[in-house]
Structures are given as structure tokens and as C-alpha cells.
């Protein structure tokens, strides 16, 4: 276990370095393009004096590195700057929205794992002609259905026809629990459909290639039946290959959620990102992009750690 711990520490260091690099690049990019936010905020009618005093107020007259460092320090102490368009601290605006988006992603991730992994494992036996066609059609269809389309269809069927929730009227969990939960639930379903198709496909081809490996023959020669060959040997070996894929899926879910939040009217961070992009509210865009990137880096970190624990081949040579 010591090797694992050492790996975690090493990986953690890389994680922090990546995050700093990403935040630097994002900050740099936005400083370059944002032009003069003070001018943007005040409009063309403002006087030079007004603009200068607002720039001072926003700290825009300091050198780049100083601004970056104070922004970075602020980021980790929860002070994310002030939104241009709302004139409010970014964290107040983003915090609860972030929780909402992450919960929807995690819910969807859970659905993917619970549905796709068992189906992927058991579909490896489906080898008849009809089964191959059915499987391929369902797979390709699943991958072809964009979440925002299912979102519209669900909000029509379950929201308008069955009145399970009112799309767009998200009051929050404390106000009305079930309708809020329904928003997240259907959002998660929309998000998971194409990814379930992808994961089943991935899982299936991994199980098949593992089934053809020599250790399976050994396991059969010892008297294992098909089920225990799967559960004791093949499943774990297949997971090792699928986990990095799942890590990436977890990362992508938050970004894919942007569209679903828009469709179902969930006031999540993605929807906020889009409105902020349209309003050129760069402090907000910048913060959300950095947070989402951290999430991406973090997901791959978790996937790497799990693989490290599962696969002794990776542990060797790390120390």
C-alpha cells in the first residue's frame, strides 16, 4: 500500500501543477481578449475619468502577474472577483449553481455505471445475426440522440403532458423537493443515454478481448464455470481498461450538462456560463471555466488512483 500512497502524493503534485497551469492559461487568454472591461461596463458614454476610477476599483491597472497572483490567491480563499454584469462576488453567484450541476452529473454517472456495466458484460454473449443488428442499431441510435433533444421530449411528455414537473420553473430543493428532483432526474437521464450506449460498447469489446486471453483458459481448466470466470477474473480485468474511459465520461458530463440545464431550465453553472459568455462577463466565464477544468483534472486523477489500486502492473516501477 505504501507504493500506492507514494503514487497518490506524486499524482497530487501533478494535479496541483496542472491546475495552476490551466488557471494561468485561462487567466492569460481572458486578459488578452477582454479588452477594457471598465469601458464595457460603463458603456461608450462614460468619461475617461469614470473609466479610470472603475479600472482602479476593479484592480485592472496593476501588472498582469500581480493580477494573476491575487486572482489565484483569491480563488483558493473563495474570493473569485466581482461579476461585471451583476456587480456581485462571483462565488455568491456560482457556488450553489455549481452544486446543482455536480449533483446532476453524479446522478447521471451513477445511471451510466448501473445500466451500462451490467449490460455491457452480459451483451458479450449476444452474437447471433439478429442480436448483432439489434445491438448495433440501439448503440448507434443511443449515440445519435442529442441530450437536448431528449430534454425537449421529456419536458413535453413528463412535464407538460404528465405534469411531473414544470420545466423551467426550478424552485430549489428547499422550496419544492420533488419537482426539483424531477428536473435533475430527467436531466441526468438525457445526459446518460448517449453515454450508456458508448459505455456498453466499450465494456462489451473489453470483455470480449479479455475473454480471449490466456488466463481465461487457465481459469476454465481449473473448473470455473462461465459465471465465476466472469466475476472472479474477467470483470476486474475489464474494469481496469474501462475506468479511464469512465473518468473521462465523468469529466465530460459536467460540460455536456450545460445544454441540458438550458433545456430543462435548471439554474446550474453551465447555463450561467452560457449567459455570461453572451454578456461577455469575463470574471464569471473565467471562474467557471477554471472550475470545470479542475473538475476534469480531478476526475482523471480519481480514475488514475483507482487503477493504481486495482492493477499491480501499474504499481511496479512507480517507486
Amino acid at each position: 500500500m505504501n507504493e500506492v500512497l507514494l503514487y497518490v502524493l506524486k499524482r497530487l503534485l501533478i494535479l496541483v501543477l496542472t491546475m495552476i497551469l490551466v488557471s494561468f492559461m485561462t487567466f492569460g487568454a481572458f486578459s488578452l481578449i477582454s479588452g477594457d472591461p471598465a469601458r464595457t461596463i460603463l458603456g461608450t458614454e462614460a468619461t475617461e475619468v469614470q473609466v479610470r476610477s472603475l479600472r482602479h476599483e476593479l484592480g485592472l491597472d496593476r501588472p498582469f502577474m500581480a493580477r494573476y497572483l491575487s486572482w489565484l490567491l483569491g480563488f483558493f480563499s473563495g474570493n473569485l472577483g466581482v461579476s461585471f454584469s451583476y456587480r456581485q462576488p462571483v462565488w455568491e453567484l456560482v457556488g450553489s449553481k455549481l452544486m446543482l450541476s455536480l449533483s446532476m452529473s453524479l446522478l447521471s454517472f451513477l445511471m451510466i455505471i448501473l445500466v451500462a456495466i451490467p449490460l455491457g458484460v452480459f451483451s458479450y454473449k449476444a452474437t447471433g445475426k439478429t442480436m448483432i443488428w439489434l445491438r448495433t442499431i440501439f448503440n448507434q441510435l443511443g449515440m445519435a440522440i442529442p441530450p437536448f433533444f431528449t430534454g425537449i421530449v421529456f419536458s413535453w411528455i413528463f412535464g407538460i403532458l404528465f405534469r411531473l414537473f414544470t420545466p423551467g420553473d426550478f424552485k430549489g430543493f428547499s422550496v419544492s423537493f420533488w419537482p426539483s428532483f424531477m428536473h435533475l432526474f430527467f436531466g441526468a437521464v438525457c445526459l446518460s443515454i448517449p453515454r450508456i450506449a458508448m459505455t456498453i460498447r466499450m465494456m462489451r469489446s473489453t470483455v470480449i478481448s479479455e475473454m480471449n486471453k490466456a488466463y481465461v483458459r487457465t481459469a476454465i481448466s481449473r473448473g470455473n464455470d462461465r459465471r465465476s470466470v466472469l466475476s472472479r477474473h474477467v470483470l476486474k480485468n475489464s474494469l481496469v481498461s474501462v475506468i479511464s474511459f469512465l473518468g473521462q465520461t465523468l469529466a465530460e458530463l459536467v460540460c455536456a450538462g450545460i445544454v441540458v440545464e438550458q433545456v430543462l431550465g435548471i439554474p446550474g453553472v453551465g447555463r450561467f456560463l452560457v449567459t455570461s459568455i453572451l454578456h461577455r462577463d469575463y470574471p464569471v466565464v473565467q471562474t467557471i471555466v477554471v472550475i470545470l477544468t479542475f473538475w476534469v483534472v480531478f476526475a482523471s486523477f480519481i480514475a488514475d488512483i483507482i487503477n493504481q489500486v486495482l492493477d499491480p502492473r501499474l504499481r511496479r516501477g512507480q517507486t
Binding site: 460540460c255 455536456a256 476534469v296
Partner: peptide, 10 residues
């Protein structure tokens, strides 16, 4: 490794 959709949005 970066979600392409986020990158494109950016």
C-alpha cells in the same frame, strides 16, 4: 483529455 465541448465554448 479536456472535454472538447468546453474548449469549443471557450
Amino acid at each position: 483529455a479536456f472535454p472538447s465541448f468546453l474548449l469549443a465554448l471557450l
